[in-house]
């Protein structure tokens, strides 16, 4: 027999046999899937960062389609993704406030008073168990757990403290969870002006105690609260806070920034 003919025939028949088996199995093991899940998944960022609390973007898509989560539940996708998802599901307009991470500690390693030498595992969570190297019990430990937690490369260490690249930050909140001292929070970001305003201190102690541990800690002088024209800054005990509902409407916040004697009302600008 002609070997070419035999090869073609036998291979063809084998392929056919396997194709038949696959077809049967495919029919038997078919998975019913809502096509909208796939569409919603397309509209999500696909970073699988876990910031929404779901294990993956697919998981999130399934929850959104089922109605267990809002279209804007993805903190990374922001308004644009929420709009597309709402369109897919036939829902109305949605508005999402964009947030970025801000670090409530602005002291460089020279500005903080060092009281110990730490030689343990070089992570903030480990160092925090012993209190870290610095006298301030509220400030940044400086080992960069937040930098490692960030899936978008939006946090970097500069002079011993983390800085946020507001253009890259998606507001996913991973760093917020990573920081054992809770000095990172998510705050509204003014996309028009491309900046966030925040108080770079987290120390609620009174002025003498703050002065002992840090050169740039908030001393509770109330200058910002008095200067602001619309009450966008207020005091929470001895610590200045920003009222984000008002601050971007404020007319004179640059004056507030200027007048702060410790220079800790700061802005993070898009480059």
């Amino acid at each position: 027999m002609n070997p070419i003919l035999v090869s073609v025939l036998s291979m063809g028949l084998l392929a056919l046999a396997f194709a038949a088996i696959l077809a049967v199995v495919n029919r038997k093991l078919a998975v019913q899937e809502d096509p909208r899940v796939e569409a919603v998944l397309e509209a999500l960022p696909g970073a699988n960062c876990g910031a929404c609390g779901s294990a993956s973007c697919r998981d999130m898509a399934e929850r959104i389609v089922k109605g267990d989560a809002e279209p804007g539940a993805c903190p990374v996708g922001g308004t644009e993704s929420a709009r597309r998802i709402a369109e897919i599901l036939g829902l109305g307009e949605v508005e999402v406030v964009e947030k970025v991470a801000v670090v409530h500690c602005g002291a460089t390693s020279e500005q903080k008073v060092k009281v110990a030498e730490y030689r343990g595992v070089k992570t903030c969570s480990a160092a925090n168990l012993l209190g870290g190297e610095y006298a301030c019990r509220y400030g940044c430990l400086g080992y960069g757990d937040c930098v490692r937690a960030c899936g978008f490369g939006a946090i970097y260490m500069a002079d011993g403290r983390p800085k946020v690249d507001v253009e890259r930050c998606t507001g996913c909140g991973k760093c917020v969870q990573a920081c054992p001292r809770g000095i990172i929070t998510l705050e509204p970001y003014d996309r028009k002006r491309g900046e966030t305003i925040f108080v770079a201190c987290n120390n609620p102690d009174r002025a003498p105690a703050v002065r002992r541990v840090c050169e740039v800690g908030c001393i509770g002088c109330r200058m910002c609260a008095r200067t602001s024209d619309n009450g966008a800054f207020y005091m929470d005990g001895n610590l200045a806070k920003v009222d984000y509902g008002k601050v971007y409407e404020s007319g004179n916040w640059d004056e507030v920034v200027e007048k702060c004697p410790r220079k800790i009302i700061r802005m993070e600008r898009a480059a």
Binding site: L22, V25, N26, L29, V31
Partner: peptide, 8 residues
């Protein structure tokens, strides 16, 4: 086949 099986 394994893939279909696992997926199900």
């Amino acid at each position: 086949i394994v893939e279909m099986f696992l997926r199900r």
